[in-house]
């Protein structure tokens, strides 16, 4: 039996997972999915910022479009910190394709014109 806290939403359900991967304590189905993932291959959405070529808005916030394997988080940060984007930029624009070979793109989360 393993105990986890679901981090999928702010409700933070206390989950229990037995040896056959049966999950209890989850308020919604996402909790069960989270528990199984967390015990097999944990993933996290990465959010950070990226340099821009603007003085007014020197940073643009970004995120990994899908959650990344936990062990790639710091490597992905290194990639993000190497890039400078040119404005204008829009929400969803890809700033790094397939970061660290994960198959996941890093995308902008803010629209910045200048």
């Amino acid at each position: 039996m393993k105990e986890l806290i679901c981090i999928t939403c702010p409700r933070g359900c206390h989950l229990k997972v037995d040896d056959n991967m049966n999950v209890t304590g989850n308020f919604c189905p996402r909790g069960a999915k989270y528990a199984v993932n967390e015990l097999t291959h944990p993933v996290r959405t990465l959010t950070s910022t990226i340099k821009t070529n603007s003085e007014l808005n020197p940073r643009c916030p970004v995120k990994s479009k899908e959650p990344l394997p936990k062990e790639l988080i710091f490597k992905a940060m290194d990639e993000i910190n190497k890039v400078v984007v040119k404005l204008p930029i829009n929400i969803g624009d890809i700033v790094i394709k397939n970061v660290c070979g994960s198959g996941v793109d890093i995308v902008a989360t803010k629209k910045i014109d200048k």
Partner: peptide
């Protein structure tokens, strides 16, 4: 803080 933030 929220539990999820303690964890993540």
């Amino acid at each position: 803080g929220l539990n999820r933030n303690i964890v993540q």
